[in-house]
Amino acid sequence: MKVKQLSVFLENKSGRLAAVTRVLAARGINIRALSIADTSDFGILRLIVNDPQSAYQALKEAGFTVTLTEVIGVEMPDRPGALSSILAHLEEAKINIEYLYAFLGRGDNGALVIFRVEDLDKAIEVLTSKGVKILNEEKIYSL
């Protein structure tokens, strides 16, 4: 149920994101989702790709500081209130969200959101029990 996300440290200056994508392109890696968290000095690029291990290797060889983090991919109907109800489940279970971002593509039946929470196992259990669909790795990498 958990999905591997790449996190890359970037200095907040021009050309750094381009450098990452160049490395991934050369390795034939396809980006499924991405988000950037930034401050005035640095940024953290978070990526879901079709082949996390190979992307990790490529970025490491290129000299980037990169780690693999586990996240969950949640599918939800593409309509008002869908995200809100999922957040309500997590809130009820007192699960803190570290960050979340939406998928670039679309799922079979709706929108996809990547969640990074404090307690992944508990979040999976809570959401599954509420009938929320959590996508597995193969599904997400191949979307």
Binding site: S7, A37, D41, I44, T69, E98
Partner: peptide
Amino acid sequence: EVSEGLFSDKVRGLEELE
């Protein structure tokens, strides 16, 4: 230089490190 040992994928983590 942010090595893997220092890196956190959370902004809060890096700001805390700083």
